[in-house]
Design a binder for these strands. Structure first.
Length: 942
RNA sequence: GCCGGAGUGGCGGAAUGGUAGACGCGCACGACUCAAAAUCGUGUCUCGCAAGGGGUGGAGGUUCGAGUCCUCUCUCCGGCACCA
């Protein structure tokens, strides 16, 4: 049976066999069902390069393993001809996607097949097919029926170059995702899907699914849940301004209000605003700004509404009302209460326009060495912390206290009848000897220090005022030896101070003063807040919000989904506009609403769908009253078809339903869905939304469509850049298959690095996997039949265990490296038992299906290896007879010890201690302690 | 700014708190060969002739023992971002 390894011949042979036998799921079988899904493999104008197939290979490994484990596997393929790359290409070429995809999908199909990917080709579906999109339209009408689809006038993003409207997700940094042109805003009537109604569940249900943390976080960021309060502020004109805030506890510090320039109230109050000229001008300017201008401007601007005041419902004080474009119209209520002391944006604005800054939360610092002890008595004090500046240099006085090993500022208590400034001056004069003070002023920051005073057995809670002192000159009084021992003084620069100060509260104060003040973040104890003083800020939120008549609400950043496109391609939205009856859904029997054949697919200049000009198609009779009516000319986005394709895959040929209940019950939810990170806030979110809605109306069996989601890393070009045709750094998989074979390419792509991580392609490294495969091939010459009962070596059992687990964790690289280790070991043997070899072939089959299938048949089998059962391992046979363990002295490795694997602890200890190599380290010392970890290590402590 | 993820040889990367650098690439030497390729063997973190020492971005800490856990810090990648 000796022959040259010829991948080309072997691979084409088996690919033909599989097309009949392996790829097609046996849907009628009684085997347990397993649904593996991969993100749409879309054919793009750029063609396929080696960066593409890696995720398919990864999922193919899983799918092939599942088959061997006895599952009936649904592993489908389909394409979205409305998909972005195709659409992009369509815009460039002016041809309909339908024309383009035929050639691209053919190439793509061929390339994927040549890799031995075991997709279920028989279920291939195409979302441009009216048989498919009929059901997309039908599902849209379900949304309409349940008031989750509605029409609204909104500002859409318009790309002036491509002349098409863009969805939010197609706008990157204010520019068109395809061509980079800055987008304009246009007001248009658009179909919307009310995804915000599901925001809460889309967020919360993430807890119930097995997605990678980064995917969950990204979705949560996007959904943007925030808990807060809605509070009404009354104006002097008796209007109400509703604000949303996540920090109702800071309301006593709300010293002004800001409305978005678009806020409705402004027009209403026009007559009472005495500086309307200025205000009107500002509003006009704000509206003309694009989204980038507005968010790009870091310098805040605004205008006060003179003549209007609001009343802070907590303090009952009158506060000014401003408009500023840093407040966004579409988030919250479009109005805010500004708390400059505790919000950085408000702080910047207040500084610029000289508005009042009032601290209402004192941050708390708990001493790290002597933290407060629960149960101990709390005693309250007032104190002062003092920062001292040099009389002529940019230097500050550092106080080193040897007693506590503190490097800090100066602290002191406030005595009876003293104000904090006086205390500060007194402390400095006493502790440093410096007498002449040029300036003493408050640092506008108050905080609370908490620590335990062990000698008194009490907790101290000290409310600290902070004071800045600049000396007038260096004149110094003699100070007592006692004081000199307590305080070692040194003058340091700003940077040195920052590096030297060891107390975090002192450092905080220093940085606060050095930055010229800033907003005070976080939580703490309420101050200047009337009856809520001394309360914990987090705890006070609800109470304060009730006190001012507000209510706690949850808000989301997520906005409703703009579902209209003014483009030719895409499923026509199946409704008819009738003058008498209004919006009438197309009756089910008339679905699908097909796209008319047209000559020109180009978008129009006026932003209307190209369909609007086709009067034959547009003018119809109203299905309800039979009168004159017009079709909706907007089409759906590419995401419509892709939001439910995984449901259709379970039953792709059903003409009566979007999918039968039985198929859905059998296959859903998807057990494992792998896709790129770029779909996290798009396809993944949309399809979860659709599925949840369909679950609510009883059409699908589970509320989450995907049990487990993973995401792959991209393969980058050899230089580490993204592969793209325009950069000319693409690698064509055909060439690699031609030179090395598909099995080598598959093994390499799985071996090159962790699956979830981006990794650079390296042509040189391909030879490793090729050598490995050739070694496996050559091993067959050593095979002997194992006549007597076969137990398998510990090596085999270890390899089976490792490979089995690693595949589940998508640690394909280490799975392969373990098989390499095993093969290297077999190679050194004179003969190889057939059973052991066959087990190896099974393990390798998901990675290198062609060669393993070929060898399997050369060994005399007639059945397909792909349907053999996955090998088991025996926990009891994992152990070698001998183990090598390390022997350490004080944690340093000094020797190794070979032991019988079932040696006990005592035996291990004695043998380790008796090692001659250790003599020179022990030098007659008696070990204090010997730690024995069986089978791992012995550590001798001397 | 906020939220995630990651920093280990010449390179890709391995290491349930237990012998750091598995496996692969590359490189060096050797065998086979007239020769080369292929293949096989040996070696390959670093300083040192050696005994030994040092070493997982940096500084501390916990532990008998830390790449792994904790605190601080630096750098890189990804996402969100005047989001109240």
């Amino acid at each position: 049976m000796s022959s040259e390894y010829d991948p080309k011949q072997i691979e084409s042979k088996w690919q033909k066999v599989w097309e009949k036998d392996l790829y097609n799921a046996e849907t009628e079988s009684t085997k347990p069902k397993y649904y593996a899904l991969i993100e749409f493999p879309y054919p793009s104008g750029d063609g396929l390069h080696v960066g593409h197939p890696r995720p398919y290979i990864g999922m193919d490994v899983i799918a092939r393993k599942r088959r061997m484990e006895g599952f009936d596997v649904l592993y489908p393929i389909g394409w979205d001809a409305f998909g972005l790359p195709t659409e992009n290409y369509a815009i460039k070429t002016g041809r309909a996607p339908r024309e383009i995809t035929i050639e691209n999908t053919d190439t793509f199909r061929k390339q994927i097949k040549s890799l031995g990917i075991s997709f279920d080709w028989s279920r291939e579906i195409n979302t441009t097919d009216p048989k498919y999109y009929k059901w997309t339209q039908w599902l849209f009408l379900k949304f309409l029926e349940h008031d989750l689809a509605y029409k609204a006038k909104i500002a859409i993003n318009w790309c002036p170059k491509d002349k098409i409207g863009l969805a939010n997700e197609e706008v990157v940094n204010g520019c068109c995702e395809r061509c980079g042109t800055p987008v304009e805003k246009r007001e248009k009537e658009q179909w919307m899907l009310a995804i915000t109604k599901y925001a809460d569940r889309l967020d919360k249900d993430l807890d119930t699914v097995d997605f990678p943390e980064r995917v969950k976080t990204q979705q949560r960021n996007w959904i943007g849940r925030s808990e807060g309060a809605e509070i009404d502020f009354e104006t002097t004109t008796k209007e109400k301004i509703k604000v949303f805030t996540t920090r109702p506890d800071t309301i006593f510090g709300a010293t002004y209000m800001v409305l978005a320039p678009e806020h409705d109230l402004i027009q209403k109050l026009k007559s009472q605003i005495s500086n309307w000229d200025e205000v009107g001008e500002y509003i006009k300017k704000a509206k003309s700004k694009t989204e980038i201008d507005r968010t790009g401007d870091k310098e805040k601007t605004g205008v006060e509404l003179v003549g209007i005041k609001a009343i802070n419902p907590a303090t009952k004080e009158e506060i000014p009302v401003w408009i500023a474009d840093y407040v966004l119209p579409h988030y919250g209520t479009g109005a805010i209460m500004a708390v400059p002391a505790h919000d950085q944006r408000d702080f910047e604005f207040a500084q610029k326009y000289n508005l009042l800054i009032k601290q209402v939360i004192a941050p708390i610092f708990v001493d790290k060495v002597n933290p407060t002890i629960e149960g101990a008595e709390n005693t309250e004090r007032n104190g002062v912390i003092v920062l001292v500046k040099h009389w002529s240099e940019e230097k500050y006085l550092l106080n080193y206290s040897p007693k506590f090993n503190w490097k800090c500022l100066f602290t002191g208590g406030i005595e009876e009848g003293e104000n904090p400034l006086e205390s500060a001056v007194r402390e400095i004069q006493e502790e440093t000897g410096y007498q002449n003070i040029k300036e003493a002023r408050y640092i506008p920051l108050e905080h609370v220090d908490k620590f335990h005073a062990p000698h008194k057995g009490v907790n101290r809670i000290v409310t600290q005022k902070n004071v800045f002192i600049q000396l007038a000159d260096g004149e110094k009084r003699e100070i007592s030896q006692e004081e000199m021992d307590l305080h070692h003084l040194s003058w340091l620069t700003k940077e040195e101070m920052r590096e030297t100060i060891t107390l975090q509260n002192h450092l905080f104060i220093f940085n606060f003063e050095m930055s010229g003040g800033s907003s005070i973040p976080g939580s703490g104890i309420l101050i200047n807040s009337g009856k809520f003083n001394d309360m914990d800020s987090g705890f006070a939120q609800k109470e304060i919000s009730e006190f001012v008549g507000g209510k706690m609400v949850t808000r989301f950043k997520l906005r409703d989904w703009v579902f209209s496109r003014q483009r030719y391609w895409g499923e026509p939205i199946p409704v008819i506009h009738c003058e008498k009856c209004g919006i009438v859904p197309v009756p089910e029997k008339d679905l699908p609403v097909m796209l008319p054949e047209v000559k020109n697919y180009q978008p129009t200049d006026n932003g209307e769908s190209p369909l609007a000009t086709i009067s034959d198609w547009v003018n119809v009779k109203c299905p309800k009253c039979g009168g004159e009516a017009r079709r909706e000319t907007d089409t759906m986005p590419n995401w419509a078809g892709s939001s439910w394709y995984f449901l259709r895959y379970t039953d792709p040929f059903n003409d009566n339903k979007f999918a039968s209940k039985k198929s859905l019950d059998d296959w859903m939810p998807v057990d494992w869905y792998n896709g790129g990170m770029e779909h996290t806030t798009l396809h993944l979110l949309y399809s979860r939304f659709w599925n949840k809605f369909l679950f609510d109306i009883g059409l699908v069996p589970t509320s989450e469509p995907y049990k487990k989601r993973t995401s792959h890393g991209l393969i980058l070009a050899e230089g580490g850049e993204k592969m793209s045709k325009s950069k000319g750094n693409v690698v064509n998989p055909d060439n690699i298959i031609e030179r090395f074979g598909a099995d080598t390419l598959r093994v390499y792509e799985m071996f090159m690095g962790p699956f979830e991580q981006a990794i650079a392609w390296s042509e040189d490294s391909l030879v490793g996997p090729r050598r490995f495969i050739e070694k496996v091939w050559k091993l067959k010459e050593k095979v002997i039949d194992s006549k007597e009962e076969f137990f398998g070596s510990p090596n085999l059992h270890k390899t089976i265990k490792k490979v089995t687990n690693d595949i589940e964790l998508m640690n394909f690289n280490t799975a392969i490296s373990n098989m390499m280790i095993f093969v290297n070991a077999l190679e050194k043997q004179e003969k190889v038992f057939q059973d052991e070899y066959e087990a190896l072939l099974k393990l390798l089959n998901p990675f290198a299906p062609h060669i393993t299938e070929e060898i399997w048949h050369e060994l005399g089998h007639v059945t397909l290896l792909g349907f053999e059962s996955w090998p088991d391992f025996d926990e009891n046979k994992l152990e070698d007879n001998e183990v090598t363990i390390g022997v350490q002295i004080n944690g340093k490795l000094r020797a190794t010890l070979v032991l019988d694997s079932n040696s006990g602890e005592e035996e291990t200890r004695l043998k380790a201690l008796a090692l001659p190599e250790l003599a020179k380290w022990l030098e007659g010392q008696t070990p204090k302690k010997v730690i024995v970890v069986l089978g791992k290590i012995v550590n001798i402590v001397v």
